[in-house]
């Protein structure tokens, strides 16, 4: 009796186990140690020209579906009579750049955005199935095989960095080009930024130039009042940016 029972129980479980055996254990770069990194990014507002190269590169490198963005650029237009209500545009995420303006009476600037890879991220806290998590090297990731597509995390992210992939029906977001940074490359957006406005940084690397930059510049994170532990640092961020 126990045999039949065990067999009945084990059949579906064995099928699942066999599937994962067939899939194999993926290999990481052998020299990469998860515990030796804590990834972040530095964005210099004073250098961004709104060309959209980062958005194009990200879309191609990560097969981002049309109309969705892992990174995007916003153009802020601040009138000095109404500093707290800026006019923000981001036509198609800025993938084709921005319309030119000749208006010199107001303030204009570009703000590239992406997942802030928060150390205390609201999105990972709300996931009901443990499909999104912060990796030991500080990258907020989505496990596509676990994600149910409930979009709770999409609502929870205060920065609007997540979307539901229209074909896979799972949450998708920036993973700091994890396949590149574990190989010693930089992210696709940083690689293709022509002015160096975006810099990948490793906070655990004492030789990383970010440490000196953070010491000597006026650096902000987005929505610090949310206490998310955001790790995307903005140089010369205007107070009107939300």
């Amino acid at each position: 009796m126990m045999n039949r029972r065990q067999i009945l129980i084990l059949l579906p479980a064995a099928a699942i186990a066999w599937k994962s055996v067939l899939a194999g254990t993926p290999e990481m770069s052998p020299n990469y140690k998860l515990s030796e990194h804590w990834w972040s990014m530095l964005i210099d507002i004073t250098k961004c020209i709104g060309c959209g190269n980062c958005v194009r590169a990200c879309s191609q490198e990560n097969n981002v579906p049309d109309g969705h963005f892992r990174t995007w650029v916003e153009r802020y237009h601040v009138n000095d009579e109404n500093m707290t209500e800026p006019v923000v545009i981001s036509p198609e995420g800025g993938i084709h750049g921005f319309p030119a303006t000749t208006d010199t009476s107001d303030k204009y600037f570009f703000v590239p955005k992406l997942c802030n890879h928060c150390a205390d991220s609201p999105c990972t806290q709300v996931c009901p199935v443990g499909a999104t998590f912060i990796s030991p090297d500080g990258v907020v990731m989505v496990d596509r095989t676990y994600c149910l597509g409930c979009a709770y995390c999409v609502q929870a992210c205060p920065y609007g960095c997540r979307y539901i992939h229209p074909e896979l029906e799972v949450a998708d977001k920036c993973d700091l080009c994890y396949h590149r940074i574990t190989q010693g490359l930089t992210t696709a957006c940083c690689e293709n930024c022509p002015t160096g406005a975006r810099q990948l940084a490793d906070l655990k690397d004492p030789k990383d130039p970010i440490h000196e930059f953070l010491r000597t510049h006026s650096v902000q994170v987005l929505k610090p009042q949310m206490a998310t532990g955001a790790k995307v640092f903005y140089n010369e961020l205007d107070g009107s940016v939300h």
Binding site: M28, L34, E61, F133, M141, Y146, Y178, H179
Partner: peptide, 27 residues
């Protein structure tokens, strides 16, 4: 899954799978 709980309350192999994605930009 075997790798669940390797680093935390998630599937550890998810990290390795993400690292194994194909690239398009050479650098």
């Amino acid at each position: 899954p075997k790798s669940f709980g390797e680093y935390g309350h998630y599937r550890g192999n998810a990290i390795k799978e993400d690292a194994a994605r194909p690239s398009y930009y050479a650098g």
